[in-house]
Structures are given as C-alpha cells and as structure tokens.
Amino acid sequence: MNRILVTGATGHLGSVVTQTLQKMIPARQIGVITRHEEKRAELENQGVTAHLADYDHPFALEKAMDGIDTVLLISAGDEGDRMQQHKNVVDAAKRAGVKNIAYTSRALKDRTTLSNALMRDHFETEDYIQESGLTYTLFRNILYMDAIPLFIGKQALERGIFLPAGEGKVSFALRREMGEAMALVLANEPSQNKTYHFTGREAYSFGDIAQALTELSGKPVSYTPAETSVFVATMRQSGIAEPMLKKIVDFVTDIRHNQEADVYTDLEKVLGRQPLALKDGLKELFGL
C-alpha cells in the first residue's frame, strides 16, 4: 500500500491533486499538509489524514510524514526563502524514512540562460532531490494557461495585448489537467527516478492568443509586441509596484526567448486524452 502525502494541499494545484487521488485510492492512504486549521478539519472530515504544518517548521513536517511512502512537494511561493523551505521538506522526508519524493518543477528549455531568477530555484531543488538518495519523480510543468488573464490584463478584450514577448511561444496547459496527471502518476506508476514534461500539444504566441480571443469574442483583439523599456515605462505610470513589474518582465523575457516553447507528449499519454487546446481554454477562462 502506497501512502501519499501532498504538501500545499489546499492551494490551486494541490487541491486538484488531492481531489483526483480521492477518486482513485482509499482516503486512508492520503495525507495532506495545510497551514489553515479550518481547511485541515474539512479534509479530515473527508477521511484524509490532514496535518497542520508548513515548510518553515521541520519538526511538524517530519511528524506529518510518519508512515508515508511518497511525498509530493508542491513548490513554495516566493514570499520566503523558497530554496531553504524545499530543503526542509526533503530533509524531513529522509529523517522520516520516506521512500519516494515527487516535486512540481517547471518545463523550461535551458536553466543556464534564464532571465527569471525565481525559476532557477526549481532546478536547484531538482539537484538537491537527486542528491538526497531518495527515489524521485520530477514533474516539469509548463506555464499555466490559467495565468494568461494575469499576463494580458482583464481589459485585453477592449484594449488589446501589450507585452514585450516578441514572437515567443508557450505550450500552455491548464493547471487542473497537470494536477490530474500528477495524481495519476503518483497513484499508478512506481517512482523510478523519472522526469515528466507536462505541456500542451502546441505552442502559442501572444499573437495567437489575440487571434483566438478575436474569434471567440467577435471583437478585434490586437497584440502589440512592445519594447521592454517602453513596457516598463508604461507600467510604472499605472502605479504597479516595482517587485511585481520586475517579476512580469522576467517571466515575459523568458517567453520571448522561447524558454517555454517546447512541446512534449507526456501529459497526453498520462491523461489518456489530448489536453485542452488554447482556444477551448480561453473560452473557459474568459467566459466566452
């Protein structure tokens, strides 16, 4: 019997993984970690073993991992020392006698040429896991299709898309489909030091996104591939905070350099169906 612990289980991705696992294996085989007592109690009522813990408290992590075979480490946010938090989880898993660890990494082309420093943490975490001696599964997930409204803004249908992304492409996939695939792997496939690349079946530029939105809405949606300096100046006038602006520029720079353009078939193979295409995803995300 493979007992699986999902960290970050009440976040967007973690909740999809947990809910999918509940449909596949007995609830008693599922453990979760959350930082919120009300959510812990809710999951406990579903029959799942829920623990109150977070990545900054190694003792609580180790206690939650008692009797666990496989830990899914869902990457931390960027509010704290993310790399140290990831190490805390891996180290706690080793001390608790966990056999396998899985990690939600990122599907990026070349770690040595990334503009976004936050993304380098993913590769350093992969290195740390591979050096830990634990059997591992790495889920390299593409940029969520769900993030498109955040990048192009809520007014894109009226104002168009204005980004310094050039003709760079992304093989977008929906977060829920990647979460479902991760659960399927955890429940059905033995951990064997394997890396999965979860991407959509085609890569799209922001010009393609503009065209798809035009067709879906019946309104002309333009895409302006702005110069970075012009974009930064425009966004500063809107009052955006500098840390957020830098994060957006770093993300989009890597897109311009096609860091997220590679297409793999792993997601389709695991799901047993084709992942949702861009136009269908945008229809859902924008309510069109």
Rank of each mutant, 00 (worst) to 15 (best):
L143E: 04
I152P: 02
N188D: 12
I148G: 14
I152L: 02
A212L: 08
G168V: 09
L216V: 10
N188Q: 14
H197M: 07
F206R: 01
L184C: 00
D146W: 14
P149Q: 11
S217V: 06
Y144L: 10
L143H: 08
M145G: 05
R201S: 15
A183S: 02
E167Y: 04
R201H: 09
P149N: 07
P164V: 03
L213S: 00
G168M: 10
S171R: 08
M145W: 04
G200L: 05
R176V: 11
V170T: 12
F172N: 09
G153V: 01
A187R: 05
P149G: 11
R140F: 08
S205V: 03
E180T: 15
I152A: 03
E215R: 12
L213Y: 02
D208S: 09
G166S: 03
A183G: 05
A156Y: 11
L150K: 14
S205H: 09
L163G: 00
E189R: 11
I209G: 12
Y144N: 13
Q192Y: 01
A156P: 13
G166Y: 04
K169S: 07
G166T: 01
Y204S: 04
I209Q: 12
E180Q: 15
T195P: 05
F172D: 14
A147C: 08
I209N: 13
E177K: 11
T199H: 00
E158P: 09
L143A: 10
T199E: 02
F162V: 09
N193Y: 09
Q211R: 05
K154R: 15
L174W: 02
D208Y: 08
I161G: 01
L216F: 12
S191L: 08
I148Q: 14
Q155M: 13
L213C: 04
T199W: 05
E202K: 15
A210P: 00
G179W: 07
T195S: 14
A181G: 11
Y204D: 00
